[in-house]
């Protein structure tokens, strides 16, 4: 049973946004922005961590099929939450997704907090954009919507390596953060899990004593770990607490 989607190097190197004139750096930033938005909406809606991760994964995958200039990141972020909540059997209503989004926006812009009127034109517009976005995502994915997450691998590995509570927790947090990048569509879950443990052990300076080359037990090479680590380093060099929105798509 092979459900995890890993994109080809060719696809990874030439993103649609790249071809559309968006710089690597801007694309990286806007992906972080969208994934953080998904996380914030997901937390307000009390979605479990794996549903948030599914939403972030399909968000990252989508922008390998379309340019961020063509399709608004905010819409796809909400559509990702909407679709992921169905895929993972934790459905949320569109009105709640929109209200959470509006809430996050109002906080970001220091506006007064007030919910959106569900009979307003603005609401109707956003709602129909999300529904269209959802359909469009399914279409772009060719209806392949299975996502396999590294969470269970990570816990298993930490257990068998007798990692401390702190190391396990740090690795778990790094794994959650990894969804802000395209790691989830570049590497198989086993490799991601090993890499997060490795990165965490370096970060908090805790040796994994059981076995020096422990990652080999889990079918991972040092090259792969270094590739993932590089992506993580690039991520943590950015401001991921409050990423800035970049306006790309044309205002309607």
């Amino acid at each position: 049973m092979e459900n995890h989607i890993i994109l080809s190097t060719e696809k990874l190197l030439n993103t649609p946004s790249n071809k559309d004139g968006v710089s690597d750096e801007d694309e990286r930033k806007i992906r972080v922005y969208g994934a953080i938005l998904i996380r914030k909406i997901g937390l307000i809606l009390k979605l479990p961590h794996y549903t948030i991760a599914t939403a972030q994964t399909i968000f990252q995958r989508f922008y390998y099929t379309k340019s961020i200039k063509r399709i608004e990141v905010k819409v796809i972020s909400m559509a990702s939450v909407f679709l992921a909540s169905k895929i993972d059997e934790t459905p949320r209503r569109i009105v709640h997704i929109i209200n959470s989004f509006i809430h996050v926006q109002q906080l970001e812009e220091n506006q007064q907090i007030h919910p959106i009127d569900p009979y307003s034109q603005e609401y109707t517009d956003i709602s129909s954009e999300i529904v269209k976005g959802e359909s469009y995502m399914l279409h772009q994915f060719g209806f392949v919507i299975q996502v396999e997450h590294p969470f269970k691998f990570l816990l298993n590995y930490c257990n068998s390596l007798e990692c401390s509570q702190e190391l396990t927790q740090t690795a778990w947090n790094i794994l959650n953060d990894s969804y802000l990048t395209t790691i989830c569509v570049q590497f198989p879950p086993e490799v991601i899990a090993s890499s997060c443990i490795y990165f965490a052990s370096r970060l908090i300076d805790e040796e994994i004593v059981r076995n020096v080359e422990w990652y080999k037990l889990f079918g991972t090479t040092m090259d792969e770990i270094l590739d993932v680590s590089l992506e993580l380093m690039l991520l943590y060099l950015q401001n991921i607490e409050s990423p800035k929105y970049i306006q790309f798509s044309d205002e309607k």
Binding site: F82, I94, F143
Partner: peptide, 21 residues
């Protein structure tokens, strides 16, 4: 696809997800 509020029918998503597996 259902009404504007529900988007793609969740049963359709389940059916596709499971049958692909």
């Amino acid at each position: 696809i259902g009404n504007a509020e529900d988007g793609v029918n969740i049963s359709a998503i389940r059916e596709i997800k499971f049958l692909k597996e």
